[in-house]
Design a protein around this nucleic acid. Structure first.
Length: 596
RNA sequence: GGACCCGUAGCUCAGCUGGAUAGAGCGUUGCCCUCCGAAGGCAAAGGUCGCGCGUUCGAAUCGCGCCGGGUCCGCCA
């Protein structure tokens, strides 16, 4: 069952408003909020009810606020309610209400924060979807982490989430990959050809010169000997080997990528192959849906203004009427030679998801695909044909990796790009994930390699982990003292908590109680980074309380001469650890018990 | 030429979908370990929220126009 003190208070406010002002309609009520205050002086929570209701009621906000405050102040859970500012009502809750939150957390365990918001609706989250042409790079990593955490977040918020990877295994790039593998194959056999000779003799050139293809080629040698090579270890006709080598290469690359994802603690439920989808007639099915609504036609595109390519010639191609669905121009689904564009295949991909029963879809893309958002959303609207289906797209901006204060150059060609695996090996997946989630995904990000490797206080993951480790440390120490009684979570949930009245303690409890609200708002906004910031703030509240115990011994967690106060504080500490674990779980980061 | 993203403290970034006196880390300055873990805490200094109009009770947040940075713009995926 989901538990959320803010929605509980909102219900109280709505009930009082409905009683005082029966004329209020549902639309107005829907805009009434109860939110935490920024200033402690304004109480625990504030509601904008009077400001929202003023205009429809034709009365002054202050007047409504005064009446509402008087009604709310009479409720047992509310210690103080007063009109403030332009027409807010500030609420201070009775301490027992906050104390009850601690017990609720301990009873719910790591499930605390789970929400029923999603109502079990199915959501498809597609992320990573890197071309199977090599190991994952730091560039892919952001989308992988954001997508994975977003999927976990939506699951926590009550959605039925499917995590999907769309394998781009049908285009020219995987053919180029096959040629690059073939080069390594000839090399492994000891060919006399030079790299330049080979590149010049192939349709694609040598696009993937990385060492990671050597073992792939060696496997080919082991399986086929020199049977795939031409006379004298020359280049054999492509028809004799290309399909097989391509299949072999894609399989090997996907194995690499799956390993990288596993190392990053990213898991996905469904891997959809573009090639398999095409072979199964997915594009024809999508085309039929669009043709049925007369949304495809043969036409000629205008050249882009101000930047006409040298070799531009008007060519007729098949176009999708994207302008009818909010896009700026109609978009090609076939090239001038009649073959399908990537866009057409991706339309088929989304049509396939919809056929599988997903009406809510989220794609996580790199920023270089930003220009593609409108057309894909247009296509989904068209495919829905009036049905209620939506595609949200989360764009992840470029990650610049900084080392020694300067950006590292990212060049696949030169082989200087950073493989994700190197980064994970250097700092661990927890650090990588946490840092990637400490930025809004649509903001550019600098990944400071020095700070991440150094593992100092500049690293937010350690700040949060340290708070958790401190909690666990206190609980371990408490378990050694028999006079404190049973310190298991279930037992602490029953502890008498009336003694928790210090400002630092209540600040911490208020933060813990805000976790369910944060899950909902972050899920709704598709912004998993908010979890990282929440945990960072929560850790700060806990560290502050910890240090308050240094200045004031009566605030220490364990006091042998005050068993009841100690048990109350242990309950608070256990609840803090619980919420941190709950949040880290959504981020896919493991909590630590100690940091030695 | 057009589309999309970004512009908030010296630097890196939050800002709860329009709320009250705009926040944090790093850096700078000064404090706090005979005491549960100092990888921590407290305090000070630092801002015309890129600029200008507009929308309304109220704008960092929404709209329009500029300026600056980024990503893109048919036969790559």
């Amino acid at each position: 069952m989901s538990h959320n003190i803010f929605t509980a208070l909102r219900r109280l406010v709505l009930a009082e408003m409905a009683r005082l002002f029966p004329a209020l309609d549902a639309e107005v009520q829907a805009r009434i909020e109860v939110s935490p205050t920024r200033e402690a002086a304004h109480g625990d929570m504030a509601t904008n009810a009077a400001l929202i209701a003023a205009k429809p009621l034709g009365r002054a906000p202050r007047e409504i606020a005064t009446a509402l405050a008087a009604a709310l102040a009479a409720l047992p859970d509310i210690a103080k309610a007063e009109p403030a500012g332009p027409g807010f009502v500030n609420l201070t809750l009775a301490d027992p209400v906050w104390h009850a939150e601690i017990a609720a957390i301990l009873r719910a365990g790591e499930a605390f924060g789970a929400s029923a918001m999603g109502q079990g609706r199915r959501v498809n989250v597609e992320y990573v979807s890197a071309n199977p042409t090599g190991p994952l790079t730091v560039g892919h990593c952001r989308g992988a982490v954001v997508g994975d955490a977003l999927a976990s977040l939506l699951a926590k918020a009550g959605y039925d989430v499917t995590r999907e990877y769309y394998i781009n295994d049908a285009g020219a790039q995987v053919t180029a990959l096959a040629w690059s593998v073939y080069w390594r194959y000839l090399q492994a056999l000891g060919t006399q050809l030079t790299e330049e000779d080979f590149a010049a003799a192939t349709p694609t050139g040598l696009q993937y010169p990385g060492d990671y293809l050597i073992p792939v080629a060696e496997a080919l040698v082991a399986a086929h000997g020199d049977a795939l090579a031409g006379p004298g270890l020359s280049i054999a006709p492509a028809g004799a080997w290309l399909d097989m080598v391509r299949r072999h290469a894609i399989e090997a690359m996907m194995a690499l990528i799956r390993d990288d994802l596993a190392a990053l603690n990213v898991r996905q439920d469904v891997f959809t192959s573009e090639a398999a989808l095409i072979a199964a007639g997915g594009v024809e099915r999508a085309e039929a849906i669009l043709r049925g609504q007369d949304l495809l036609y043969e036409g000629v595109l205008e050249p882009p203004k101000g930047k006409t390519p040298e070799d531009w010639e008007p060519r007729e191609q098949t176009l999708f009427r994207a302008t009818g669905f909010g896009d700026d121009v109609d978009r090609p689904v076939r090239k001038s030679d009649g073959s399908n564009t990537y866009f057409f295949n991706d339309i088929a991909n989304h049509a396939d998801k919809m056929a599988r029963g997903f009406d809510t879809m989220i794609d996580v893309w790199g920023a270089d695909h930003g220009g593609y958002v409108k057309r894909m959303q247009a296509a989904v609207k068209a495919l829905a044909a009036g049905r209620d289906a939506s595609l949200d797209i989360v764009l992840c901006q470029i990650v610049r990796v900084m080392k020694d204060g300067t950006p590292m150059r990212m060049s696949k060609r030169a082989g200087t790009y950073i493989e994700l695996r190197d980064l994970i090996d250097a700092v661990g997946s927890d650090v990588v994930r946490f840092i990637m989630l400490m930025r809004k995904s649509d903001a550019q990000m600098e990944f400071d390699l020095d700070a991440a490797v150094a593992q100092t206080r500049e690293n937010p993951v350690f700040y949060v982990q340290y708070a958790h480790a401190r909690c666990r440390s206190v609980l371990r120490a408490a378990a050694e003292l028999p006079e404190l009684g049973d310190t298991a979570d279930a037992a602490l949930a029953e502890a008498a908590l009336a003694g928790l009245t210090a400002p630092e303690e209540l600040t911490l409890v208020r933060r813990l109680a805000a976790w369910p609200r944060l899950v909902e708002s972050a899920a709704q906004a598709r912004e998993p980074h908010r979890i990282g910031f929440f945990l960072y703030d929560l850790a700060g509240d806990f560290h502050a309380l910890w240090n308050a115990g240094r200045a004031d011994a009566t605030l220490r967690f364990i006091q042998a001469d005050a068993i009841e106060a100690s048990r109350a504080r242990l309950a608070l500490v256990a609840a803090t650890a619980m919420v941190i674990r709950s949040g880290l779980a959504v981020m896919g980061v493991a909590p630590v018990e100690e940091m030695r």
